[in-house]
Amino acid sequence: MNNKLSILFGLSLMLLTSCSSGYTIKGKLAGNELDGQQVMIINLATDEAVDSGLVESNSFLIKGTVEEPAVCAALIGNKFSYFVLENARIALDMEKSFNASATPLGKSFEALYTAMNQLNESTNQKLGELAPEEQQAYYENEVIPASKVLAKEHLDKNLDNTVGEFAYMLYSSFADPQELIDAYEAMGDNLKDNPQTLRIYQKSKSMLTTAEGMPFVDFTVTNAQGTQSLSDYVGKGRYVLVDFWASWCGPCLLETPNIVELYEKYHKKGLDILGVAVWDKPEDTQKKIEELGLPWPQIIDAQRIPTDIYGIQGIPHIILFGPDGTIVARNLRGEAMKAKIAEVMGAK
């Protein structure tokens, strides 16, 4: 009798274990217009699809396992919903932009998401009340500091889990390199080993070694044109404005007329321009160069080599190097870039 009870108990335990060893996502939609389409589950940190499921009768069921929890989004059509993917039962209402769960991680992400949403709503309301010429100052003086405090507060509460990873990524948009390094060093080992947080940490260290006032750090790229190095152009006795860009990058192309204007005004006075094409297909880069008729030299197919060295997380990123190769200014754009060039060329 005892043996039978032991066997039954063991079988029950196995069944319970097998039911709780993975995740089960049950989702619903308001109507059936999306029946037959796939719901994609996207990891927000890596931007990679981790699972998918078919919508039938305005609902879907997705089962699987995940090694580590992750902040994800369920996407179908023009609908999306954020949630924490973990080995648990997860209910998603695709009419909501966020679905909370009763797990500790779910509650932590709910707190972060709610705070972000409240800040966005108050920001949009305030911007609607301001004149256009007042909006930029409000954003820089009020919104960015508040966003930075919010991200750091939730990072400090989640120093060793996926919510902390998400908060650190948010924090990286507002914090300076030393603050990001300090935040990383306070993390638990699990979060320190996370590829995304480690990438931000390494880029932050790179930004410190390539900050304004530091000497340039050389890099070499081998492409169809041969071997090209930054030192072929920088540190040769002239100011050099280096534009890290890509053919698909809209904001990069918006800066092109500004750079053309600077080239035409200052090139004969001692300013060189260098384009460095990153994260792009070389044939697309070459086509765009010819289309725009860019007259300055280009280092093509550089990919991640220079952006890793200089800690560049987004493009365009424009750096001004002095005649001796010293980094004069970073992340120059628009009118601020024109003013900086006018300042140094006027002082030369």
Rank of each mutant, 00 (worst) to 15 (best):
L5F: 11
L8S: 06
L8T: 03
C19F: 12
S20W: 06
G22M: 03
T24V: 11
A30N: 13
N32I: 01
N32R: 09
N32S: 15
E33Y: 09
E33V: 07
Q37R: 14
M40D: 08
I41W: 00
I41G: 01
I42D: 03
E48R: 14
S52K: 13
S52A: 10
V55C: 02
E56P: 01
S57Y: 06
N58T: 04
F60E: 01
I62P: 02
I62K: 01
K63H: 06
G64V: 07
T65D: 00
E67L: 11
E67G: 14
A70M: 13
I76Y: 00
G77K: 03
S81N: 13
Y82A: 02
F83K: 00
E86H: 02
E86T: 02
A88M: 03
R89I: 10
I90Y: 03
K96R: 12
F98E: 07
A100K: 13
S101D: 11
K107E: 14
F109L: 12
A111C: 02
L112Q: 03
L112M: 13
T114R: 12
T114L: 07
A115P: 08
M116N: 13
M116C: 07
E121V: 13
E121K: 14
E121A: 15
T123G: 02
E129Y: 01
P132K: 00
E134P: 11
Q135L: 01
Y138W: 11
Y138R: 03
Y139C: 01
E140T: 07
I144F: 03
A146R: 14
A151V: 04
E153N: 12
H154E: 05
D156H: 03
T162N: 04
G164L: 06
E165Y: 00
F166I: 01
F166Y: 14
Y171L: 15
E179C: 08
Y184M: 08
E185W: 02
M187G: 01
D193T: 04
T197G: 03
I200W: 09
S206V: 09
M207V: 09
L208I: 15
T209M: 15
E212N: 13
G213P: 09
G213C: 12
F216I: 06
F216P: 06
N223W: 08
T227H: 05
S229K: 15
L230D: 04
D232S: 07
G235M: 09
Y239F: 15
Y239N: 05
Y239D: 04
D243I: 00
D243E: 14
S247D: 08
W248N: 05
C249F: 05
C252R: 04
L253T: 05
T256E: 09
N258G: 02
V260Q: 14
L262G: 00
H267I: 00
H267Q: 13
L271I: 05
I273L: 11
T285Q: 03
T285I: 01
Q286P: 00
K287R: 15
K287F: 09
I289F: 08
G293R: 08
G293F: 11
G293V: 06
L294F: 12
L294G: 05
P297L: 04
I300Q: 02
D301Y: 06
A302S: 07
R304H: 07
D308F: 04
Y310R: 08
Q313D: 14
P316Q: 05
I319K: 04
G322K: 10
G322V: 08
P323N: 13
D324Y: 10
D324A: 11
G325S: 10
T326W: 11
I327Y: 13
A329K: 15
R330G: 02
R330A: 10
G334V: 05
A336D: 15
K340R: 14
A342K: 12
M345T: 08
A347I: 06
